[in-house]
Design a protein around this nucleic acid. Structure first.
Length: 423
RNA sequence: GGAGAGGUGGCCGAGUGGAUGAAGGCGCACGCCUGGAAAGCGUGUGUACGCCGAAAGCGUACCAAGGGUUCGAAUCCCUUUCUCUCCGCCA
């Protein structure tokens, strides 16, 4: 959520910048500013009314103390009237506030300066590429066949026990998962992150804080009886740790890393290209989150980008980094890099990480602030990224490293798997 | 799940209807003192919104949350919530 004072001070700037996201904010902003003006008028009147009532109450107290009770009657009446007026005004004010808030929530985050103009994923900018695209033998299989051949991941069993998109991992498949999780966490610790094990269910306030609510509740599984949501990403609990918090500048940057299961309903997104591990309802992910000062957040974004790159290099996967254009960037993000690995048998680029700077957009919603060197409280910047999402990494590892005898494990993973081949 | 006790500022803790944004202490910041430090002394120390673009100043709101009683509520009443103790259940 944008801070309203930015709209007050420079509405044209906001409108102009949001064009990069192909969003026309002019009408929304006009409405918001009109309501805001009305709101402030009301507030001034309300405060004056309450102020008078407070003064009267004090006067009455003094009168009573001096023993002249009867003189207070008229003042009491006046006070009752004021109180009734104040109540009406307070209600109106609340309605206005709600209205302003709901309009404010409809405005996406302002894209950062570097975000390229564009409409779709076609317009994204490839900023970095690594590795050679492997040439596989004609008999090479896509991962959904490999997992059957080596009996490491079982979709049919998942279907039976739960439903589509909830596979079982078995034998070396399960061990590979565990190896990847440990590898990712250990690398994170080396890079200075603090390991966190978050709850997998969160309440409404948390889902609202990171922006899943109010719009995207259809994308989360909810546990209706207790009003909890299954997390779609560890970003939600990890960032909400600092909801309604004022940090010290010396605490920053905060660097947390967490492994979690992630649950996504993925309503309406099933199609031909989501076979096998490409899209699941439950999957594993290691997530990194940083809380930073506004001055450093873009440096931090680059640091995180660099960090995710090193993971993929160590896994020896060919990948590219894409700077998302305005049209493809998410509602809440100011700037995002996507990481895509090449999955050789599918002959497709698969998104395995998305690293974003949200600037103060999430922080404003969840009142995540810090006290700066001058003692002033200001909103912090939040950033997060996957490091990494497992299923598509597994898909690429299986497909790219297959040969006639089996699937070769990347050197950096062998200490974690304890085996060199899946065969 | 049952019974009881509680929730006050960064922390501890006082406060049972009017003087309280809130005693006292700790912590923190600044100043004095010192060769330097400690101790001591002094001053200051919450958040949000608004008056207003900034500073100063002022107003309003906030003592778990929400509602109510009252001219006036941290204090009384109701609801919710969380914590602690005992009992029950339990990986």
């Amino acid at each position: 959520m944008l801070q309203i004072h930015i709209l007050r001070q420079n509405p044209d700037f906001v409108i102009e910048r949001l064009k990069v996201k192909n969003f026309d904010a002019s009408e929304l902003i006009t409405n918001i500013l009109a309501l805001d003006e009305k709101k402030r008028e009301n507030q001034v009147k309300l405060d004056a009314t309450l102020s008078e009532a407070n003064k009267i109450a004090k006067t009455i107290g003094e009168i009573i103390k001096s023993g002249k009770q009867d003189q207070a009657t008229q003042l009491k009446e006046r006070s009752v009237t004021l109180k009734a007026e104040a109540k009406t005004m307070a209600n109106d004010l609340e309605l206005l506030n709600n209205e302003i808030n709901s309009l404010l929530l409809q405005i996406p985050n302002i894209p950062g300066d570097q975000v390229p103009q564009g409409k779709t994923a076609e317009d994204n900018e490839i900023v970095f590429s690594f590795g050679k695209i492997p040439t596989l033998s004609p008999s090479a299989l896509p991962h959904w066949d490999l997992i059957k051949k080596y009996d490491i991941i079982d979709f049919e069993l998942g279907n039976k026990v739960t439903g589509a998109g909830f596979p079982f991992y078995r034998g070396k498949g399960a061990k590979l998962q565990r190896a990847l999780i440990n590898f990712f966490l250990d690398e994170g610790l080396k890079a200075g992150y603090t390991e966190v094990q978050p709850p997998l269910l969160v309440n409404e306030a948390s889902a609202y804080g990171t922006g899943q609510l109010p719009d995207k509740d259809g994308q989360m599984y909810n546990v209706g009886l207790d009003k909890f949501y299954l997390i779609p990403t560890a970003e939600v609990p990890l960032t909400n740790i600092y909801r309604d918090t004022i940090l010290k500048e010396s605490d920053l940057p905060i660097k947390n890393i967490a492994y979690s299961n992630c649950f996504r309903r993925e309503a309406g997104s099933w199609g031909a290209d989501v076979r096998g591990l490409n899209r699941l309802h439950q999957f594993d992910k290691v997530e990194i989150v940083q809380i930073a000062t506004p001055e450093t957040s873009y440096q931090v974004l680059e640091e995180m980008r660099e960090y995710v790159s090193t993971l993929l290099v160590k896994l020896e996967l060919p990948f590219r980094i894409v700077k998302l254009c305005g049209g493809d960037i998410s509602f809440t993000s100011a700037m995002t890099y996507d990481f895509e690995v090449y999955s050789a048998a599918q002959k497709r680029w698969l998104e395995v990480s998305s690293v974003s700077n949200f600037e103060s957009f999430q922080a404003n919603r969840m009142k995540l602030r810090f006290k700066n060197k001058n003692g002033k409280t200001e909103l912090a910047h939040t950033l997060n990224g996957s490091a990494l999402a497992l299923p598509r990494i597994v898909a690429a590892l299986l497909e790219n490293n297959q040969n006639e005898t089996g699937i070769k494990i990347s050197d950096s993973l062998i200490p974690y798997t304890g085996f060199k081949m899946i065969d």
